[in-house]
């Protein structure tokens, strides 16, 4: 959400670049984005504390408000999982719940006024702060690569290494003609490779792109004169409430779909 640039004394470009710079330490690959790390961990703890409290006090009798909320979330996620996934796996549903809640909380930070937390931080001598973890490609890639790892793990576990390799070689084109099949194998290999790689990349980039763009627009709105900001800031924020929920939901559902695909044998 937008707040003014008055008093920063910076040019618009400097203002935008400033807002898109992480709080870092280290060089090259070993650079750490402390703001991303801090906010994602803090939001993860918020999620975990709320649900852990609900779970610790969970009763089969009359549930309290917190338990009601937790149960609604759990049931919502569980329904999504059961719709897509028909096997037995005790990881997928909690994984989906974690992804949905965590990503939602990440995205929710986008609705905090863009200058509020950086301003507070500047009082403590911290001059760069990006508060939305999902506008950091490292966060979204971390999620999607973890999911990717699980996809490969379950594919191999369910189909066996040979079965998984066969999927690469004989899908989508499969024929009984030996010569034709030999010609089709490289094509299949390329297609399957692209398909596999596309999953984590698209997952990460979709979330990152949406939230990065949303954040950028909030920053641009913040460049408007203060009396004009609400005309764009308010509709964009309202629209964004939908976007952040939708993005968290999409990430969760695609994770479930990919993992259930990993459990299915394509030959059957």
């Amino acid at each position: 959400m937008a707040t003014g640039t008055e008093g920063t004394g910076a040019s618009p470009t400097e203002y935008i670049v400033h807002h898109l710079t992480n709080l870092t330490s280290g060089e090259g690959f070993f650079t750490v984005h402390w703001d991303t790390m801090f906010f994602s961990l803090a939001l993860g703890l918020v999620f975990y504390m709320i649900f852990r409290r609900a779970a610790a006090a969970a009763t089969a009798g009359v549930p309290g408000n917190l338990q009601n909320f937790a149960e609604i979330m759990v049931e919502f996620v569980d329904t999504q999982v059961k719709d897509c996934f028909h096997g037995r796996n005790e990881l997928i549903a909690p994984l989906a719940l974690t992804i949905f809640c965590w990503v939602f909380l990440w995205n929710l930070m986008d609705l905090v006024p863009v200058d509020l937390l950086p301003m507070v931080a500047s009082w403590f001598g911290i001059h760069y702060l990006r508060v939305v973890p999902s506008t950091d490609l490292n966060s979204t890639l971390a999620l999607s690569l973890s999911v990717f790892g699980l996809i490969i793990f379950y594919s191999i576990k369910v189909k066996g290494p040979a079965g998984y390799a066969k999927e690469f070689l004989f899908h989508p084109f499969k024929t009984d003609n030996l010569l034709a099949q030999a010609l089709l194998v490289p094509v299949n290999l390329i297609l399957a490779f692209v398909e596999t790689i596309a999953k984590p990349i698209s997952l990460a980039l979709r979330l990152f792109g949406n939230l990065y763009a949303g954040e950028l627009i909030f920053i641009l709105i913040a460049l408007l004169p203060w009396w004009l900001q609400f005309t764009l800031g308010w509709p964009w924020a309202v629209f964004h409430i939908l976007v952040i929920t939708l993005q968290a939901f999409i990430f969760m559902v695609l994770t479930i779909v990919y993992l259930s695909m990993a459990h299915e044998d394509l030959d059957h």
């Binding site: 690959f29 994602s40 993860g44 999620f47 005790e90 990881l91 974690t98 890639l141 971390a142 973890s146």
Partner: peptide
């Protein structure tokens, strides 16, 4: 892309583990 990625992955796996 840097080591933050690994940090986030660790946080994520811990969160998933405890949720599970």
């Amino acid at each position: 892309i840097n080591v933050t990625l690994l940090g986030q992955m660790i946080t994520f796996s811990l969160l998933v583990y405890f949720t599970m």
